[in-house]
Simulated scan of single mutants.
Amino acid sequence: MKNRMLGVIDATTYHEDLEELTVHRSLAAVPFAGRYRLIDFVLSNMVNSDIESVAIFPKYQYRSLMDHLGSGKDWDLNRKRDGLFFFPSPLLDSPSKGIGSFNHFAANLDYFYRSKQEYALISNCFTIFNMDFRPVLDRHIMTGCDITVVRQDGHSLEMYLVKTSLLISLIENRNETGYTCMRDVVTDIHHSYMICNYEYTGLAVMIDSIENYFAASMGLLEPEAWKNIFKRRQPIYTKVKDEPPTRYMKGARAQNSMIANGCMIEGTVENSIISRGVKIGKGSVVKNCIILQKTQIGENCVLDSVILDKDVKVESGAKIEGKNEMPLVIRKGTVQGALMNS
């Protein structure tokens, strides 16, 4: 059964409610849990499910995504055969109504023609979960389904398993059928395909707004949620960076927080997620926050319910507060001073 599935990740999705975090990067490259990007979760799940060929279809702002994934080495996808492939969309003005634009696939049909895998797994790039897709394939084959839709609590997770030959047929005949993506096929009441559902019972969060990005991040501070996502036997892989351990200076205090490597903490951190290379100055208090990579927080600052994007600089004495249900987002590279209206 090994290597019978082809992985296809749609990285073209744009959520307006996440604009503050996607101005300089694609949704797939949005940082999560201190060390990861959103795409790491589905990509790792595919690799852990014996998928050895993965095609990523990006559209906007994908430079940081390509930099993060590189050759696929950290996911064991830098292979002579199969491996990791990028197919940027040539159709910037033709958004699809769902995951997996057939027009986008059509521009890269050679990839599907040359693939030896019998089945294709098509997925979004923005779901936080840890899932083995092999049982989905087993059920798909056993029941003789044409298309299997992965669902949770009856709602589609925008993940579809289909025979590669059927996917090619859907792409080639898109103009005649009017189907633009997999969602069109499974929701058409007139189709002749056998559609099956696979119910996923684990933790899964589709990140489509600042509010649920913040809630999903804070949720990882609960041990049960952490164990559900970060499993020893099904690891989530990410880009490896050689950085020193975090330094906790005299007077520093950290409680119920995730703090990545390469940081220097002199102040207080509570119920927060701190990414790599962050500096928090003496006397500063950071509570209920998400602080992204290489951000610098000066001395005697107070931050509560705030998301600081990468490379933000908070000057000493600044006070920045949001709300738990509506965190305040400070964009990448911004400088926040004590006298600014925060």
Rank of each mutant, 00 (worst) to 15 (best):
R63C: 02
M258Y: 11
C145Q: 11
Y111H: 14
S156W: 08
P223A: 02
C263E: 06
I122S: 06
C125A: 15
N48I: 02
D304E: 13
I259V: 13
R253G: 00
D93A: 14
V47N: 12
G281A: 01
A252T: 01
D93N: 14
Y213C: 01
M131D: 01
M218L: 06
R81H: 05
F214W: 00
D67N: 11
H24G: 06
K2S: 13
Y62R: 08
H104M: 04
K319F: 10
K73Q: 05
M258K: 03
P88I: 14
N271I: 03
K2P: 03
S96Y: 00
R4C: 09
E176Q: 14
M1F: 15
R331L: 15
V240E: 14
L43W: 00
T22G: 00
N45K: 00
A33I: 02
A11T: 02
M326H: 15
F129P: 09
M131S: 06
A28K: 01
D309N: 07
M249L: 09
R79D: 06
N324Y: 09
R79W: 12
K241V: 12
M326V: 15
S192R: 15
M326T: 15
E325H: 10
A216D: 13
Y193A: 08
L77P: 03
Y200A: 03
I51Y: 13
L69Q: 11
S53F: 11
G72A: 04
N324I: 01
R331T: 06
T148Q: 04
V185P: 00
K241M: 09
L166R: 10
P244T: 05
G262E: 02
I128P: 13
N173R: 07
I280D: 09
C196S: 13
K227M: 05
K227R: 14
K2G: 12
T13S: 10
Y111A: 09
M182D: 02
V240N: 13
P58I: 10
R81V: 07
S316M: 03
I99K: 06
V47I: 13
D153V: 04
Y113S: 01
R63T: 15
T187C: 06
M194K: 15
F87S: 11
H104R: 04
T295S: 14
L109E: 10
M46L: 13
S272T: 00
S44I: 02
N261V: 01
W75E: 02
L308H: 11
H155G: 10
A107G: 07
I265K: 09
D242L: 08
N324Q: 07
G281W: 12
I280G: 00
S284Q: 12
S26F: 08
D10W: 02
R35C: 05
I51C: 04
P245C: 01
T143Y: 12
P327L: 03
Y200D: 03
A254T: 08
H191D: 12
S123I: 09
